[in-house]
Design a protein around this nucleic acid. Structure first.
Length: 334
DNA sequence: ATCCAGGTCG
DNA sequence: CGACCTGGAT
């Protein structure tokens, strides 16, 4: 199957996008880009990548920042554990590893926030190690070209696809091969309406022959979601308002929100009936939860300000990391 | 309004 | 193996 790698690499040289993280060998920059891109589209990730290499040009800069600063710059990207792990790993590299960035797959995968995909990506892109990446794009390309029905979200499937990817990767050009297969998945072998006419693999693709592209890849899990009912207390007076940090192992850990009453129904809790204003119902969907949210404004100071409440003025809002839901409400409120 | 994509961790 | 977030497509 030397044909596979050569075909996609030739195609990639002609058709690959020119993205900023492809013009560097700096492992720190590549690490940043891979973590940002882990669950994010390129279009959205671009601005964050620029922001991060500007604000934190070296791993030491990242290590010396506060988690709050990093979460704040990460705000809006979602999956905030990525930002917390990024910070923790930067500190680990800066302090324990004395600033020496791990330079091989085995050491990279030990780091918090770096799994098999990212370790393969960084080790191949920055150090030319022959490690095959397997991400969502690769699952799609391989399941179609080889007509594989094993569910990609099963333990057995993960191994099967990783093994196949390992067999296909070019020994001489592992980095280019990895870029090429992912780019093919992103631009040609797309989830819906793949552009098979332009695909360099169409002559050997089993899904093209069988016309079953829409049935690949196979996934088994259907995610269950639960409903939650949030009632936010929005105290505003003069230029001040109150936020509180989420510290539990729950959604949005270490991000800020208004003081919260959570209940088991959409019904307004009685202690909030005296609010000066009640917002519309916001529906906010997460991967495993659907939030039904109302904001209850009080145009005065709270009677007692709890220990863990943070009083701040509106101009300081930019420095506090908040989830998209809170950000959206603030935009509408102001 | 509903559906879907996407790596890592505990 | 279930949980984590958001935005884009339909």
């Amino acid at each position: 199957m030397a044909d596979f790698s050569l075909s996609i690499r030739v195609w990639y040289r002609q058709n690959g996008r020119n993205l900023p993280w492809r013009n560097t060998n700096n492992p720190y920059f590549i690490w940043l880009s891979e973590v940002i891109l882990q669950q994010t589209r390129v279009d959205q990730g671009l601005n964050y990548y620029t922001k991060f290499i500007t604000n934190y040009p070296t791993v030491s800069d990242l290590a010396n920042a506060t988690e709050e600063q990093i979460l704040n710059d990460w705000q809006g990207l979602g999956y905030y554990s990525r930002a917390r792990n990024l910070h923790g790993t930067a500190q680990h590299i800066h302090q324990t590893l004395k600033g020496k960035f791990p330079d091989n797959f085995q050491d990279l995968i030990k780091l918090k926030g770096i799994g098999p995909y990212s370790a393969a990506a960084i080790s191949s892109f920055a150090f030319d190690e022959k490690k095959a990446v397997v991400d969502g794009n690769v699952y799609r390309v391989l399941s179609r070209v080889f007509n594989i029905e094993t569910p990609v979200d099963s333990t057995i499937g993960k191994k099967e696809f990783q093994d196949l990817a390992n067999e296909l990767i070019s020994a001489e050009h592992p980095a280019e091969h990895n870029q090429a297969i992912m780019e093919l998945g992103a631009l040609i072998c797309t989830p819906k309406a793949p552009v098979c006419e332009k695909c360099p693999l169409n002559h050997l693709c089993e899904s093209v022959r069988l016309k079953n592209q829409s049935e690949r890849p196979v996934k088994q899990k259907t995610t269950k979601t639960r409903n939650r009912y949030f009632h936010y207390l929005v105290y505003t007076w003069k230029d001040q308002l109150i936020l509180k940090q989420r510290t539990e192992n729950d959604i949005w850990k270490n991000m800020y929100e208004f003081p919260l009453i959570e209940s088991s129904s959409e019904e307004t809790p009685h202690e909030l009936l005296g609010a000066d204003q009640i917002s519309r119902l916001y529906k906010h969907v997460l991967s495993h939860q659907k939030l039904f949210v109302r904001f209850y404004s009080f145009h005065h100071q709270p009677v007692d300000i709890k220990e863990d409440w943070k009083v701040l003025s509106r101009k300081d809002l930019n420095d506090v990391p908040v989830p998209r839901l809170i950000d959206r409400y603030l935009e509408e409120m102001i």
